[in-house]
Every structure is written in C-alpha cells, then in structure tokens.
C-alpha cells in the first residue's frame, strides 16, 4: 500500500510509462526541475544578497540569471508539449484515414449481405445459411469496431456530430439479440427481453445508440458464464426510457469500479475469462449517452455479475 502510494511520486518511471520519452523531454520532470531551479536560485540570491548587501548589482545579476534559467526550462517544456500534441494529432489523422479506407470494403460486404436477403434468394442449405449468417454478423462487428475507433479519434479531436432522430429501442434490441445467435449458442446462453411490449421511441443518434446497446450486450455475453441467462429490461419512467441489462458473469472487482468508464480500461480479472476487446467500449458508451442528454450507471459484484443501465429522453412528436 505504502509502496503503491510512493510509486506515484516516481517521476522517472512516470515519464517512461505515461509519455514514453526520456526525462529531458518529459514535461513532469522538467516542471519539477524548474521548481528546484527557482527555489535554489532564490535561496542563493537571498544569501549572496544578504552577504553583499552593499552591491545591488550582484543581486540584480543573480535575478537575471534565475530568470534566464527559468525561461530556458520553460521553453523546453513548451516544446515537449507541442511535440506531444503534434504526435496526438497525427495519430488521430492516421486513424481517421485507415478507418475510412476500411469502411469502403466493409460497406460492399454489408450491402452484399443485405442484397442476398432482400432478393429472397437466401442460401438454401443449412451450411450455406450458417455461412451467410456468419458473414453478416462479422461484417456488422467490423463496421462497429471501425466506427468505435473513428468515434474515439473524433472525441479526442473534439469533433463528434450527434445526428439526433427518432429511435425505437425495443425493435433495435430485438434485432441485436437476433444477430448474436451464434455467440449465445457458443456459450449455451440465452438473452431474455423483459418489460413493456410497447414503449415510446427515444430522441437519440440511432447508429450510435445501437452501438451503445451492442457494446453492452456484447460485454454481457463475453463476461457471462456458460449456460447462463442474460436479462434485458425496457421500461418507461416519466419522460425517459430505461434500458437495463443484467448478467451472471465474472463481475468487476470493487476497487476498479471508479475506472470502468475510462478509456482502455480492462478489468484485472477478465483475462481469466479469455476475452478480447479494444477496452474503449464503455468509454464511448458513456460519451454517447451523456451527449444524448441521458444518464448511465452500473452495479457489479465480483463473481456474481453486473447490471448496466442507461436512460434516454422520450422522442416528442412534432405537432
């Protein structure tokens, strides 16, 4: 515990792990160095000035020297920050280009799958039907991954546009459950949809809200134990629609609850359950719900399971 507390003051380690640069390019180290330089120079100036109080030129020279040192270190700090900002900008730009390039072939795949379906010429044999379903599910998953990466880059650059409209939550949840048939079958698990059969539509960004539901459903499946049942409940509370998903999974350790919505968060116990993921899902989920004027929360107990919920405002018809 004490070691952990003291570790946070290890600047050299912090520079290596957080910024991945040498100490001479690390803002934290340079900031501390500047503080030390200012303190030492001020004390030296005081002692020298008190000893040679007859000669004000020496004091003035020392003050000038201190200002010079502070300016040089300040300049190096600003340069380090500028470099970090530039690298971050290039990274976001690169992610943007790569994601866009990936979306074109994915669009072709998605359109092809929907053409087969709408054409009424669905594959005949069971084997073909299963292969077709896998193509459809995998394409949707890939589109979601790329959209998630794109949205993360946009959040970092502060340029997310929410496209609000009418969104039917129940219809969407049903479609998402149907698309998870293979994942559920592999775990011998089920998802039950409870709550009111007819529920008011919500005002939200349809694609991003679908992404939110997909993220929560995928997490519930991933972290569930085999042969378990996941329950989704939809209900209206005044002018809000409430979505809730409960699993009997591995749960999240209590000391990690505060980090759950942080970017790249992965619960420490999840590796025991051999799961894969970007670690950005819940970060994005929280951003989308809050940007839609909604609220989000969770309860979780390690070894028992988790309950995630969010609420969104009801869509008001134009009169």
């Amino acid at each position: 515990m004490l070691l952990k507390f003291l570790r946070q003051f290890n600047i050299v380690r912090g520079c290596r792990e957080d910024f991945n640069v040498s100490v001479w390019k690390c803002p934290t180290f340079l900031f501390v160095l500047m503080g030390v330089a200012v303190t030492v120079s001020t004390l030296t100036a005081y002692f020298i000035a008190s000893r040679f109080d007859q000669d004000p030129q020496i004091s003035a020279l020392l003050a000038l020297g201190t200002a010079g040192i502070v300016l040089i270190i300040g300049h190096i700090i600003i340069q380090s920050f500028a470099k970090i900002v530039e690298v971050s900008r290039l990274k976001s730009q690169f992610l943007d280009i790569i994601s866009h390039q990936l979306l074109t072939p994915l669009t072709a795949l998605k359109w092809s799958a929907s053409t087969i379906e709408s054409d009424g010429t669905s594959p005949e044999s069971a084997k073909q039907q299963e292969a077709y379903m896998i193509i459809k599910e995998s394409t949707n998953k890939m589109v979601n991954i790329v959209n998630t990466l794109l949205d993360i880059a946009r959040i970092e650059a502060g340029r997310v546009t929410m496209n609000f409209g009418r969104f039917d939550m129940r219809e969407s949840v049903k479609k998402i459950i149907a698309l998870r048939a293979h994942d559920l079958e592999a775990k011998h698990s089920t998802i039950e949809l409870w709550g009111e059969e007819v529920i008011a539509p919500v005002l939200a960004d349809p694609f991003r809200t679908r992404l939110v539901i997909e993220n929560l459903v995928d997490n519930a499946i991933k972290y569930s134990r085999e042969h378990s049942s996941i329950v989704i409940t939809l209900r209206q509370e005044n002018d809000r629609v409430m979505f809730e998903i409960k699993d009997k999974g591995v749960g999240i350790p209590a000391h990690e609850h505060k980090n759950i919505f942080q970017k790249f968060f992965r619960a420490s116990n999840e590796f025991s359950y051999q799961t894969k993921g970007l670690g950005v899902g819940l970060y994005l989920v929280k951003f989308i719900i809050e940007a839609s004027g909604g609220a989000i929360g969770f309860e979780s107990q390690e070894g028992v399971g988790s309950r995630f919920w969010f609420s969104l405002p009801v869509y008001k018809y134009k009169t």
Partner: peptide, 20 residues
C-alpha cells in the same frame, strides 16, 4: 457534415451505416 449542409445537400447518409 456542416460543409455539406451549408452547401445545400438534401440529406447526408453514411454508407456503412445503412443496408442497401
């Protein structure tokens, strides 16, 4: 999106988000 709306497009559809 802002540029396209300002230029007078009727609507803006993201290809990968829609089925054909």
């Amino acid at each position: 999106v802002g540029r396209v709306v300002a230029l007078g497009a009727t609507t803006y559809l993201v290809k990968a988000n829609y089925d054909l």
